[in-house]
């Protein structure tokens, strides 16, 4: 009980004091996760829609693989990106290991399948519903992809949020490729891991509370925007 109240105290003090180190960590968390989500959205939505509408050999296999990739173990992705970006690896000359872009790459790999697989399901359901109409209008499949993505955009917001949630909460991959460097690659989750390893459990939990609040705020904002837009655009 003591630890829990101490955690709330620590969280409140940090937030109220606008601790600059904390603000930097929060800003980096948001930046990295948003960039990863942006990449995952640009790649994942069209991919998901294409798989939903396409009729090609191996499609069923691809759906199973996409769904399975939602459960990619972060630590394995971290290791893979680490070996790719290491100076001794194929992409070593880029010098990206232990930088924020390395973290963005790892997270994008983790969440693109999530966005793609969920988008596939959403678009496929919409397709079953509107198939007749779209066919009768004579829309070519390429156009149908964009039409359906546009029509399901409000559901897809939730899909993108699922990706964002995973990115913001992830620690295994980013600690490996980012290195948890103070002021450079330290994000909320790696800071929590660090404070835990120092045995400062109340501070770690305090940071955790702030992280949860942030994710909650992001979701509330997205929900509000969605509601407003839905009412305006119907």
């Amino acid at each position: 009980m003591y630890d829990l109240s101490a955690a709330f105290g620590a969280a409140l003090r940090m937030v109220a004091g606008f601790d600059p180190a904390l603000m930097g960590i929060v800003a980096l968390s948001v930046k990295v996760s948003l960039a990863a989500v942006a990449i995952a959205t640009v790649l994942g939505l069209p991919l998901g829609a294409a798989v939903a509408l396409g009729r090609f050999p191996g499609r069923r296999g691809m759906i199973v693989v996409l769904n399975a990739l939602m459960g990619l173990p972060p630590v394995v992705v971290g290791l893979l990106v680490y070996l790719l970006l290491s100076r001794s690896g194929p992409l070593g000359p880029l010098g990206l290991l232990f930088t924020p872009p390395a973290m963005i790459i790892a997270q994008a790999i983790l969440i693109t399948p999530i966005v793609a697989a969920l988008a596939r399901q959403v678009v496929e359901d919409a397709w079953t519903e509107y198939q007749e109409q779209l066919r009768s209008l004579g829309a070519p499949p390429r156009r149908a992809v964009w039409t359906l993505l546009w029509d399901t955009r409000f559901s897809l917001v939730t899909v993108v949020l699922a990706g964002f949630g995973r990115a913001a909460a992830e620690v295994g991959a980013v600690i490996m490729v980012g290195g948890n460097i103070d002021g450079v690659t330290r994000v909320m989750t790696t800071a929590i891991a660090l404070e835990t390893s120092k045995g400062d459990l109340p501070l770690a939990l305090g940071l955790g509370l702030i992280l949860i609040t942030l994710v909650l705020a992001a979701n509330a904002a997205a929900y509000t925007i969605k509601e407003v837009a839905q009412r305006r655009l119907g």
């Binding site: 930046k31 990295v32 948003l34 960039a35 942006a38 990449i39 959205t41 640009v42 924020p100 872009p101 963005i104």
Partner: peptide, 10 residues
Amino acid sequence: AASLAVTLAL
């Protein structure tokens, strides 16, 4: 928006 976010992050 996506490319802006990436540039910002980089």
